[in-house]
Each structure stands twice: as structure tokens, then as C-alpha cells.
């Protein structure tokens, strides 16, 4: 039975195989390249390139996506209005504080953790893995459960800080201590969560740099009577500097854009506009209230320009470092 089936298959399959082979031969390398490239390119244009240029156009217009009206060309009015608005400057200032504090703290803590994680001790592998856990969570989830942690009545955070009377404890996300408004507290709370979440990422990058430094450099330095301070400044730091810069670059860009999920999950920009970073403000202008699509596009482009400028500074320094070593 089985032999019968086999012979049957081989008889009918043979010409088909031959046909496939010849059609495969007919596909030139160029044809294969086209098959792969064009669908990707089409998709990219549809969902990336077109919106990019369309929003650039919209940023020069007065337009609302929910108003049944065609965009009206107003040139640089959107940009001018954003730059003239005091509220926008305060949003930028908040964002600046948020980016500065969270990136600096992440860098310091991440470097420290990386130096610790480099040492081999019992269970060091597990500990390193556990430290990495926060960055694998979704920012919305992180925001929600930190909201619980910060809760002044039953949250763990205040309890760990030593407050046992909820009436006297700080209400972090409402920016109040013992009922008194304390500006900056909510922003600090969000920064703490961002640091908690993304320090492991910085640690991971720096750790990979540290592990690439060969032991014999330190041994040579020890024999050359270099102090450990000297070893850190002259060997460790120059060797991991490029990775530190990459970590800072990544975190800066992300702190600008991706702070959105975290802030929305925790405070929604409040209380008032205390934690209203650019990303949140952008969302409000674009999708809440009047749907100011034109103005939101202009703001998005301004953020893009800022990020490109900052990235350029970093990348230039990175290249300078590469050329040196």
C-alpha cells in the first residue's frame, strides 16, 4: 500500500518539481529584490512617510480633524502662537525638568548598579535578572500600580518612608503634604517611577561596556600603582563612555516622547498642569476638546526638531570619542 502510494506521488510530483524549478530560475535576483522591497516601501509610505509630510502641511494650517472644514493655510501662525503662549513655555519647562532629573538619576544609579553587577557573587545572575524586571513591564501597568503605591491611605510608599498617619503623609500625585499644596511633588513622584523603570536599561548598557574591559588593564594599572580612583577615571570611564552616551541619548529621546504612558497612567498631567509634559499636552491639543489638529502638528514638529538637535549633539560627541580611541 505504502509503496503504491509512494510511486504514485513520485510520478505526479516529478513534472511539478520540474516546473517549479524552471519558474524559480525565471525569477531573477532583481525580481526577488522587487518582491521584497515594494510592499515594504508601500506600507512605509502609507503609514510613515505620508503622515509625516501631511502633518508638516497641517502644521501650517488651521485645521481640526472633527470639524467638517478643509485646512486653512495660515503659514507660521501655529508656531508663533505656541512660542508666544506662556502655558506652552511652562509645559516645556516641566518637560525639561522631567528629562534632566530622570536621565541624570538613571545614569548615576545605573552606573552604580552596573559596577555592582559586574562583581561576581553568589546569585549575581539572578539578582541582575531581577533588577531588569521593571523595564520589561508596560508603562501603563507600571503607572497604575505605582498609583496604588503612592496612595496616601493604603499605599506602601509612604509607609516605607515612615509615615503612619495618612492625614500627615504626603499625597504624592496630588502634590500635597498634610493637606498643604506642595508644588513639584507630583512631578517628583513621576520622575521616581521613570527612574525606577528605566535605570535597569541604563545599567544593562553600561554593564555590557564594563564587561568588555579586559581584566589585564586593571592588573597592569594595579602594578603601575594606580589608585582605584585613578583606575576608574583613566580606565573604566573612558572605556564605557560611548555606551554611557548611547544610554543618555536613548533615555533623553524616550523621556521626551514616551513619558506619555507613564504620566497619563499616574496623573493625567495633573494636579492642574504640574506634570503636564509635552507629550501629554500634545495629546490634549490633538485629541481632546477642540481637536486642534493643525496646532498639535506644529507642536509635534517642534518636539521633533528639539530631539534631532539633542541627538545630533550626542552623536557628534560619540563620533569624536570613536575617533579618539
Amino acid at each position: 500500500m505504502s509503496t503504491e502510494a509512494k510511486s504514485h506521488v513520485s510520478e505526479t510530483a516529478r513534472p511539478a518539481v520540474g516546473g517549479l524549478r524552471s519558474s524559480r530560475r525565471a525569477l531573477s535576483d532583481r525580481a526577488i529584490i522587487n518582491i521584497f522591497i515594494w510592499p515594504t516601501l508601500a506600507l512605509l509610505i502609507a503609514i510613515n512617510v505620508f503622515p509625516l509630510f501631511y502633518s508638516l502641511y497641517l502644521s501650517f494650517t488651521d485645521y481640526s480633524a472633527i470639524a467638517n472644514q478643509a485646512p486653512v493655510w495660515i503659514a507660521f501662525d501655529n508656531f508663533a502662537r505656541i512660542l508666544a503662549s506662556e502655558q506652552m513655555w511652562s509645559v516645556f519647562a516641566t518637560t525639561g525638568q522631567y528629562v534632566l532629573f530622570s536621565v541624570v538619576l538613571q545614569l548615576l544609579l545605573g552606573f552604580g548598579l552596573a559596577l555592582l553587577a559586574r562583581e561576581k557573587f553568589f546569585g549575581s545572575g539572578i539578582v541582575t535578572t531581577l533588577i531588569l524586571a521593571p523595564m520589561m513591564l508596560s508603562p501603563v501597568v507600571v503607572g497604575l500600580f505605582w498609583k496604588l503605591m503612592y496612595n496616601p491611605t493604603f499605599g506602601y510608599f509612604n509607609y516605607l518612608l515612615g509615615f503612619d498617619n495618612p492625614a500627615l503623609a504626603p499625597d504624592w500625585l496630588a502634590s500635597r503634604i498634610a493637606g498643604q499644596p506642595t508644588p513639584g511633588l507630583a512631578l517628583l513622584a513621576v520622575i521616581i517611577v521613570d527612574v525606577w523603570m528605566w535605570t535597569p536599561f541604563v545599567m544593562l548598557l553600561i554593564l555590557s561596556g564594563l564587561k568588555a574591559i579586559p581584566d589585564y588593564l586593571y592588573e597592569a594599572a594595579a602594578i603601575d600603582r594606580a589608585s582605584s580612583w585613578f583606575q576608574f577615571w583613566r580606565i573604566t570611564l573612558p572605556q564605557v563612555a560611548p555606551l554611557v552616551l548611547i544610554a543618555v541619548l536613548f533615555r533623553t529621546i524616550e523621556a521626551f516622547n514616551k513619558s506619555f504612558d507613564l504620566v497619563m497612567g499616574m496623573t493625567g498631567g495633573g494636579p492642574g498642569d504640574q506634570t503636564e509634559v509635552v507629550a501629554v499636552n500634545l495629546y490634549r491639543q490633538a485629541f481632546l476638546g477642540q481637536w486642534q489638529t493643525g496646532r498639535a502638528s506644529a507642536l509635534a514638529y517642534m518636539v521633533l526638531i528639539i530631539i534631532i538637535a539633542i541627538s545630533n549633539i550626542y552623536i557628534r560627541n560619540l563620533n569624536k570619542m570613536r575617533n579618539q580611541s
Binding site: L217, E219, P238
Partner: peptide
């Protein structure tokens, strides 16, 4: 090592790369 006052030449030319 620092107090022994020895000089060590390693097999992998242990130069400070930067």
C-alpha cells in the same frame, strides 16, 4: 601588587587604549 614594586609585561600588550 602596587607595594611589591614589580614591573609586569603582559602577553596581550596591556596598553590603555584611550
Amino acid at each position: 601588587p602596587a607595594d611589591r614594586d614589580v614591573a609586569f609585561v603582559f602577553q596581550q600588550y596591556s596598553l590603555y587604549p584611550t
